[in-house]
Design a protein around this nucleic acid. Structure first.
Length: 419
RNA sequence: GGAGAGUUGGCAGAGUGGUCGAAUGCGGUGGUCUUGAAAACCAUUGUGCCGAAAGGUACCGGGGGUUCGAAUCCCUCACUCUCCGCCA
């Protein structure tokens, strides 16, 4: 949530920044709503004060046995006035709150301007072995007979996958490897619920705007779209002391995405699924430290690609491609030989105090209370990593080799083709 | 699923209609004492909103009601705990 006081003070700045983010709401209207809300509140508080004074007076008079009829009449009249004004206030206030929840975070100053991914800026390219032909992972899956979209379709529908045997083991090895990496970088491992309430999704920014992207399981509860939601919301309505910071958390969870609005996009293979595994890194840091923390987060995620010897590039997202809650995002994109291009495998973002304002997570340093900054990043999306390994480690007529760093988690170093 | 008991400040725990934003204890912070520390003692210590401030207002799980007045009475929802049943 943006700070309305800041918004009022630097309206032009916010207007410019929010336009870059594609926001089209009427900020002037929001500000005037806020002002009339405050005006009503002042009047309301004054009336309530009068009534409280009167009630006390009635108490004392009644104890003395004196007449209280006149005061009662006055009090009733005050009650009526209060009720009318209170209703007006409540409507205005909840209205305002809804609109505030729909305002996206503003981009950092070093975020390139642009409306779509064509304005994203490549920071760095790290190339290991890079082939630009060969079968895609779906074909490889058929050759090794361990990747089964048809059965998944029978069980559940489109955008699901069944992994078998050594391929399922390879995915498990990836998860263990990534969690071990996170641990060695100082992240504490969490096991968290995969179903969360709407308060949690509002806290991290998926709700109220992106209801359609979530899988609802009824009763106001949703499957998590990323471990970011439960991990970050661990500290919802909590105060974090300066001594506890930085907080570094990680979790492996499945992620569930409705993928509404992406019909016909990436329909082949396991690039875009309703369910996939991911290791997420989440940090709570001192407000002055978040820029540095983003670099650190990116380095933790990219080190995994380095160790797997997968070619990738670092891209800073432009303002228009930036997510709703993010102030700055650096994507890692892995090379896919079959598509002859880089595809997103990790997204590392700095949210600054946007999420902690929504969550009411305070940062306590001595007697001052502010908001800590949050960051998160995938390290990595496991499904896409698996896919990248299949394509980049495939040898024609032989099979899929196992990356060196994963060998200690497995009892084989090759997944042979069966036909 | 059935029966019952709860939800009060950072924690524990009083408070059943007015003087209660709330006793007391623990914890926290500041101080006295001490070479230093501990102990002891003294003071202080919830949050949001409006306001330049003074101050006002709201908050005793959430929502609603009764009343001039609600932490306290009523309704309702959520959650927690105990026992029984079922269950990985």
């Amino acid at each position: 949530m943006i700070d309305i006081t800041q918004l009022k003070e630097h309206l032009d700045h916010y207007k410019k920044k929010l336009t870059l983010k594609g926001y089209t709401g009427n900020l002037n209207e929001i500000i005037s709503k806020h002002e009339s809300k405050n005006n009503i509140q002042v009047k309301l508080d004054d009336l309530k004060n009068k009534k409280n004074v009167l009630s006390k007076e009635i108490g004392t008079l009644a104890q003395k046995g004196e007449s209280i009829n006149e005061q009662k009449k006055q009090s009733e009249q005050l009650s009526n006035e209060i009720q009318i004004l209170q209703e007006e206030f409540d409507v205005l206030n909840s209205n305002l709150e809804k609109e505030l929840l729909l305002i996206p975070n503003i981009p950092d100053d070093d975020v390139p301007e642009g409306t779509d991914e064509s304005s994203n800026l490549e920071l760095e390219k790290i190339i290991y072995k890079q082939s630009d032909n060969g079968p895609d992972h779906v074909e490889i899956g058929e050759l090794i007979e361990l990747l089964d979209f048809n059965t998944a379709n029978k069980l559940s529908g489109s955008r699901f996958v069944v992994l078998k045997g050594k391929l399922a083991q390879l995915q498990r090895a990836l998860i263990r490897f990534m969690l071990d990496e996170a641990a060695s970088n100082g992240y504490e491992e969490y096991y968290v619920p995969y179903i969360v309430n709407s308060e949690s999704l509002i806290g991290t920014g998926q709700l109220p705007k992106f209801e359609d992207d979530q899988f609802s399981v009824g009763e106001g509860k949703y499957l998590i779209p990323t471990a970011e939601v439960p991990l970050t919301n661990v500290f919802r309505n909590e105060a974090i002391s300066v001594d506890d910071i930085p907080i570094k958390m990680t979790a492996h969870t499945p992620c569930f995405r409705a993928e509404a609005g992406s019909y016909g996009k990436d329909t082949r293979g396991m690039i875009r699924q309703h369910q996939f595994e991911k290791i997420e890194l989440v940090k709570f840091v001192h407000p002055n430290e978040s820029e540095k923390a983003l670099d650190e987060l990116v380095s933790h995620a990219s080190k995994i690609l380095d160790k797997l010897e997968l070619s990738y590039r670092k891209v800073v997202l432009c303002s228009g491609d930036l997510g709703f809650s993010a102030a700055k995002t650096i994507d890692l994109e892995v090379w896919l030989p079959s598509q002859k291009c880089f595809r997103e495998i990790s997204s590392c973002s700095n949210f600054r105090d946007f999420q902690t304002r929504r969550m009411n997570t305070k940062f306590v340093d001595g007697s001052t209370k502010t908001y800590p900054h949050t960051l998160n990043g995938s390290a990595l999306a496991v499904g896409r990593t698996l896919l990248a390994i299949l394509e980049n480690y495939f040898e024609n007529g032989v099979g899929v080799h196992i990356p060196k760093v994963l060998k200690k988690y497995l009892t084989f170093d090759l997944i042979k083709i069966k036909k």
